[in-house]
Amino acid sequence: MKTIDFILNGKPIRSELSADRRFLDVLRKELGLTGAKEGCGEGECGACSVLLDGKIVQSCILPLASVDGKTVMTIEGYKKTKKFKAIETAFLKEGASQCGICTPGMVMATEYLLKNNPAPSYDEIRHGLSGNLCRCTGYNMIFNAIRRAAKEGEGLW
């Protein structure tokens, strides 16, 4: 039996599932991690965003094959980090989450953005979040939250 091995939130996982399975299904159905959400199933909305070797990807169009030998971080692992706390506080203070369905994905996008650019401009934030759709907030409060996280979490990224 061919297996696919990867590190998920710091723990090694050996999967015997078929390599063409959507990684989102593996997370949600097989591993019971429901923090990544399915909004569209076509890589358009970003609610299913996870970090693959530290890079944001959409897990709904990620074949299980693509995680072989790699490291994956989902919101379940990320929420235990200091950086998450800074983002969480900023999102709460700025009202960046309304219905919440896009929020775990937004958090992952924020991490990826700040890792590459610890003090992003509004324009850089706009493009950094352009793969994560939100229908509630009109995004402005999310922009402010990211600016706040960058400022108050200075040194973390």
Binding site: G35, F91, C99, G100, T103
Partner: peptide, 21 residues
Amino acid sequence: KSIDNVEGREKISGEAIYTSD
């Protein structure tokens, strides 16, 4: 005067349970 959104925390951390979860 605004207060923190009280149910924001479980949504931000992905712990809020939606139907498909």
